[in-house]
């Protein structure tokens, strides 16, 4: 009984955060803020669902696979977000106008600053 409640809570909140991550892609204003939503909420969502899977099946091989999935997600999701954000920043994708950019950032990275009038 308690196990079932625990599993339901995990699956439902996992689904909720997956929904938030997807909706974030649609609603948030620019690519970098969207990466916040997918990297954080998406990782937590899959972690919660895998926790429910591990608790529900409970046998060693399923638990081992669930743990492996979570570990690989924790390793790869931030790297993916990092690479997409890096590519966007280096190629000068227009950002949401209120974004304040540290003037040293382009110099320190050795990339060209996009011209101001590119920004919407």
């Amino acid at each position: 009984m308690i196990l079932e409640i625990f599993m339901s809570v995990c699956v439902l909140s996992g689904g909720f955060f997956a929904f938030v991550a997807g909706l974030g892609i649609l609603r948030l204003p620019d690519v970098l803020i969207r990466m916040h939503a997918t990297a954080k909420a998406g990782t937590l969502a899959s972690g919660l669902i895998m926790l429910a899977v591990a608790a529900g099946f409970g046998d060693a091989s399923t638990v081992a696979r669930a743990v492996a999935i979570v570990v690989f997600l924790l390793l790869t999701a931030p790297v993916g977000a990092h690479m997409i954000g890096r590519a966007a920043f280096r190629s000068g994708v227009p950002l949401w106008p209120p974004t304040r950019i540290d003037p040293d950032a382009h110099i320190k990275l050795g990339v060209k600053k996009p011209p101001e009038n590119d920004r919407p």
Partner: peptide, 26 residues
């Protein structure tokens, strides 16, 4: 921190106005 940040993102996504004041920092 992962849980806290997910709730923060959820709040920003689900409320009608964008609360974020983003910036790029070294």
């Amino acid at each position: 921190e992962l849980v806290v940040s997910s709730f923060q993102v959820a709040r920003d996504v689900l409320t009608p106005r964008h609360r974020a004041r983003p910036g790029i920092i070294c």
